[in-house]
Design a protein around this nucleic acid. Structure first.
Lengths: 220, 220
DNA sequence: GCAAAAGTGTTCTTTGTACACCCATGG
DNA sequence: CCATGGGTGTACAAAGAACACTTTTGC
């Protein structure tokens, strides 16, 4: 049997949640994908697929699910989150075109890829509940306003900035860099960086976070 | 590459959480496992493995994770929950012995199976938080006391029976059968059956349950 | 009649949610 | 000087956790 990999790569740009798609010459749009060579670790193969298709390296990934790909393959789907600003796209050799699409306005994908992408999206939203996913979608230094905006895009609703700031700071997932950034008009914002650790945006979530020091994430 | 399947099968018996293991003649203890034939759906192969090894059929399973199995295979691990009372074990042709082991007192397993089993256990406990997993571990009719005992074993702590009963009934995951069972001394208990739907044992959990009508479970 | 398990409500504490104003800068 | 986004604390509402006694049966 053949073992394939594919990766649902998400980013947040311009207050939109985008998905990375590529296509070969004359072909349909696809998630970055590849196959696993004999003996190669699956996660390495998935990272290689993203590198070869889009020229993006060094991103962290999480395994999602293994789908059947009749007639003779299985496909291990992965989820990746990146800051598009730090990872410019460069199409690989067999790729005619690679670009970001708004997650709610996608071209038609190959059979089965819808499932992987949909599952990736729901897992991403679920993770919002107990992991500081936003830091994976932001530059090294970011303002709390930017971080809040990412969560608002992921959750599809507005958050109260006072509660948001209180909770993020209390959770200790970010630390002040000491720097400040003035961006156009308005008071300059403090810049933070990730400090590791778990975090949950609201209610149902914070509680879970507390008890899930390790638990729901895939092993190894 | 070869694609293998293995299944961590759990049950609760006698206030203990047990795991199903099998061994071939003279060989080590293993999780029920098999390989995926060309074109066969992975979940079917996993069900077949449990049937062939232990003679148990018709159980529901959930995919957990796909592990590397160097040098030339991957293994798709699954989680299954059954009521041991309704599924007597009968060793398959290549199996010398198959039996239940307490989850915290296991023999040495083959490399990699520890990971699958450990992940299965943590997923099982995590699911306690938002799914009525106990009904998969109980007979068709059961008392609330038995159900509570299952949760206590899974969570490793005692629950308050008044809160437990209130919450289970309010969640609507069980319905009265109208029957009653007297078991030795003590007041006879009402018998319930599963009514579908989600349920959470406590706090952190109930809230999550409410918002996860669909979300965290694998697709398809 | 007593030991053993089933069944039933209320109070208090913790957590979440809603909310309004002053501050620093650019134009 | 005003428009824009950043930054701060409190009061109310909801949910969770803790808790004791009565009922029904077998022995």
């Amino acid at each position: 049997m053949r073992v394939l990999v594919e990766v649902a790569v998400f980013t947040v740009r311009d207050r939109r949640l985008d998905v990375l798609l590529a296509r070969g010459p004359g072909a349909a749009w696809l998630l970055p994908a590849g196959s696993v060579e004999n003996g190669e670790p699956v996660d390495i193969a998935a990272a290689a697929a993203v590198r070869d298709v889009a020229g993006v390296r060094g991103i962290t990934m999480e395994q999602l699910f293994t789908f059947d790909r009749p007639p003779d393959a299985v496909c291990v789907a992965h989820l990746a989150l990146i800051d598009a600003g730090r990872h410019p796209l460069s199409p690989g050799p067999d790729v005619a075109d690679v670009r970001w699409f708004p997650h709610d306005d996608l071209p038609t994908l190959a059979d089965g890829q819808d499932a992987a992408l949909g599952y990736g999206l729901s897992r991403l939203r679920a993770k919002t509940a107990y992991a500081p996913v936003a830091v994976n979608l932001l530059p090294e230094l970011f303002t709390l306003g930017e971080m809040q905006a990412v969560y608002e895009v992921l959750l599809g609703r507005e958050l109260d900035s006072r509660n948001f700031r209180r909770d993020v700071l209390a959770a200790g997932v970010v630390e002040e860099s000491g720097e400040v950034r003035a961006e156009g008009r308005g008071r300059p914002a403090r810049l933070y960086r990730s400090a590791g650790g778990h975090f949950a945006v609201d209610a149902r979530e914070r509680r879970v976070a507390r008890q899930i020091s390790s638990g729901d994430d895939p092993p190894a």
